[in-house]
Amino acid sequence: MAKQIKTSIIIEASREKIWGILTDFENYTEWNSFIKSISGELKVRNRIKIKVQGMTFKPIVLTLNQNTELKWLGNLWFRGLFDGEHKFYLTDNGNGTTNFEQSENFSGILVKILTKSLEKETKNGFEKMNKELKLRAETN
Protein backbone atom coordinates (compact mmCIF):
# COMPACT_ATOMS: atom_id res chain seq x y z
CA MET A 1 0.00 0.00 0.00
CA ALA A 2 1.14 3.55 -0.71
CA LYS A 3 0.14 6.91 0.71
CA GLN A 4 1.09 10.45 -0.27
CA ILE A 5 0.97 13.61 1.82
CA LYS A 6 1.46 16.87 -0.02
CA THR A 7 1.37 20.43 1.32
CA SER A 8 2.33 23.79 -0.14
CA ILE A 9 2.54 27.46 0.78
CA ILE A 10 3.33 30.70 -1.06
CA ILE A 11 6.27 32.56 0.48
CA GLU A 12 7.14 36.16 -0.27
CA ALA A 13 10.84 35.49 -0.76
CA SER A 14 13.19 34.19 -3.45
CA ARG A 15 13.94 30.52 -3.97
CA GLU A 16 17.56 31.26 -3.08
CA LYS A 17 16.63 32.73 0.30
CA ILE A 18 14.28 29.85 1.14
CA TRP A 19 16.85 27.29 -0.04
CA GLY A 20 19.42 28.92 2.23
CA ILE A 21 17.11 28.48 5.22
CA LEU A 22 16.23 24.88 4.31
CA THR A 23 19.86 23.82 3.93
CA ASP A 24 21.13 25.69 7.02
CA PHE A 25 20.69 22.66 9.25
CA GLU A 26 22.57 24.17 12.18
CA ASN A 27 19.81 26.74 12.70
CA TYR A 28 16.75 24.47 12.44
CA THR A 29 16.20 24.70 16.19
CA GLU A 30 15.63 28.45 15.83
CA TRP A 31 12.57 28.11 13.62
CA ASN A 32 11.53 24.52 12.87
CA SER A 33 9.35 22.73 15.42
CA PHE A 34 8.68 19.73 13.14
CA ILE A 35 12.19 18.67 12.08
CA LYS A 36 14.22 19.01 15.26
CA SER A 37 17.59 18.55 13.56
CA ILE A 38 19.37 17.43 10.41
CA SER A 39 23.05 16.61 10.32
CA GLY A 40 25.48 15.22 7.79
CA GLU A 41 26.87 16.32 4.45
CA LEU A 42 24.13 17.26 2.00
CA LYS A 43 25.24 15.35 -1.07
CA VAL A 44 23.51 12.86 -3.38
CA ARG A 45 23.88 9.25 -2.14
CA ASN A 46 24.98 10.43 1.32
CA ARG A 47 23.19 9.44 4.50
CA ILE A 48 21.98 12.27 6.68
CA LYS A 49 20.58 12.06 10.20
CA ILE A 50 17.13 13.55 10.87
CA LYS A 51 15.27 13.91 14.16
CA VAL A 52 11.52 14.52 14.10
CA GLN A 53 9.07 14.36 17.00
CA GLY A 54 10.75 11.62 19.02
CA MET A 55 12.06 9.64 16.06
CA THR A 56 15.51 9.55 14.47
CA PHE A 57 16.22 8.11 11.04
CA LYS A 58 19.06 8.13 8.52
CA PRO A 59 17.77 8.58 4.99
CA ILE A 60 19.80 8.65 1.79
CA VAL A 61 19.79 11.87 -0.25
CA LEU A 62 18.35 11.05 -3.68
CA THR A 63 18.09 14.47 -5.34
CA LEU A 64 19.81 17.75 -4.69
CA ASN A 65 19.07 20.52 -7.20
CA GLN A 66 20.30 23.88 -5.89
CA ASN A 67 17.43 26.28 -5.07
CA THR A 68 14.84 23.86 -6.46
CA GLU A 69 14.62 20.36 -5.01
CA LEU A 70 15.82 18.22 -2.13
CA LYS A 71 14.64 14.62 -1.87
CA TRP A 72 15.62 11.78 0.46
CA LEU A 73 14.51 8.20 1.10
CA GLY A 74 14.26 6.89 4.62
CA ASN A 75 12.89 3.72 6.15
CA LEU A 76 11.92 2.26 9.47
CA TRP A 77 14.35 -0.54 10.44
CA PHE A 78 14.53 -2.11 6.97
CA ARG A 79 13.33 -1.36 3.45
CA GLY A 80 9.76 -2.41 2.68
CA LEU A 81 8.42 -2.13 6.22
CA PHE A 82 7.72 1.61 6.23
CA ASP A 83 9.54 3.76 3.69
CA GLY A 84 9.22 7.46 3.07
CA GLU A 85 10.43 9.48 0.11
CA HIS A 86 10.42 13.07 1.34
CA LYS A 87 10.67 16.05 -1.01
CA PHE A 88 11.03 19.82 -0.74
CA TYR A 89 10.31 21.58 -4.04
CA LEU A 90 10.58 25.31 -4.73
CA THR A 91 8.98 27.06 -7.71
CA ASP A 92 9.68 30.69 -8.61
CA ASN A 93 6.31 32.31 -9.30
CA GLY A 94 7.92 35.16 -11.25
CA ASN A 95 6.44 37.86 -9.03
CA GLY A 96 8.81 37.86 -6.05
CA THR A 97 7.10 34.88 -4.43
CA THR A 98 8.00 31.21 -4.28
CA ASN A 99 5.74 28.20 -4.01
CA PHE A 100 7.19 25.84 -1.40
CA GLU A 101 5.93 22.28 -1.64
CA GLN A 102 6.64 19.60 0.93
CA SER A 103 5.54 16.06 0.19
CA GLU A 104 6.21 12.49 1.15
CA ASN A 105 5.34 9.24 -0.54
CA PHE A 106 5.00 6.44 1.99
CA SER A 107 5.13 2.75 1.11
CA GLY A 108 5.55 -0.57 2.89
CA ILE A 109 3.52 -3.03 4.87
CA LEU A 110 2.94 -0.68 7.85
CA VAL A 111 1.43 2.16 5.79
CA LYS A 112 -2.13 0.88 6.15
CA ILE A 113 -1.78 0.67 9.94
CA LEU A 114 -0.27 4.16 10.16
CA THR A 115 -2.55 5.95 7.65
CA LYS A 116 -4.59 7.85 10.27
CA SER A 117 -1.46 9.06 12.03
CA LEU A 118 0.05 10.15 8.70
CA GLU A 119 -3.14 11.99 7.72
CA LYS A 120 -3.31 13.88 10.98
CA GLU A 121 0.04 14.21 12.75
CA THR A 122 2.43 14.11 9.80
CA LYS A 123 0.36 16.39 7.60
CA ASN A 124 -0.09 18.84 10.50
CA GLY A 125 3.67 18.76 11.05
CA PHE A 126 4.32 19.57 7.38
CA GLU A 127 1.83 22.45 7.45
CA LYS A 128 3.29 23.85 10.67
CA MET A 129 6.83 23.66 9.27
CA ASN A 130 5.66 25.37 6.06
CA LYS A 131 4.23 28.28 8.08
CA GLU A 132 7.37 28.51 10.19
CA LEU A 133 9.54 28.56 7.05
CA LYS A 134 7.33 31.30 5.57
CA LEU A 135 7.66 33.38 8.74
CA ARG A 136 11.43 32.92 8.85
CA ALA A 137 11.90 33.78 5.16
CA GLU A 138 9.62 36.80 5.20
CA THR A 139 10.92 38.35 8.43
CA ASN A 140 14.69 37.71 8.26
Score class of each variant (00 low, 15 high):
E16W: 14
K17M: 12
I18A: 06
W19V: 05
D24V: 00
D24H: 04
E26M: 03
E26T: 07
N27A: 06
S33T: 13
F34I: 00
I38P: 01
S39W: 00
E41F: 02
R45Y: 13
N46C: 08
R47E: 06
I48W: 01
I48R: 03
K49V: 03
K49D: 05
I50F: 00
I50K: 01
V52M: 03
Q53C: 00
G54P: 04
M55P: 00
M55T: 01
T56V: 07
K58G: 02
P59F: 05
V61N: 07
L62M: 15
N65P: 00
N65L: 07
N65V: 08
N67S: 06
N67H: 11
N67C: 08
T68A: 07
E69L: 06
K71T: 12
K71S: 12
W72E: 11
W72N: 13
W72M: 14
N75G: 05
G80L: 09
G80A: 13
L81G: 12
D83M: 09
G84F: 00
H86Q: 08
F88L: 01
F88G: 03
F88N: 03
Y89F: 10
T91K: 08
D92E: 10
T98K: 10
N99Q: 10
N99R: 11
S103T: 08
E104Y: 05
E104A: 04
N105M: 12
F106A: 08
F106N: 08
G108M: 14
G108W: 13
I109R: 13
L110N: 14
L110E: 15
V111E: 11
V111Q: 14
V111L: 13
K116G: 14
S117D: 14
S117L: 06
S117N: 14
L118N: 09
L118F: 15
L118Q: 10
E119Y: 09
E119H: 10
K120N: 13
K123I: 11
N124F: 04
N124P: 06
G125N: 01
K128Q: 13
M129D: 02
K131A: 09
L133K: 02
K134I: 05
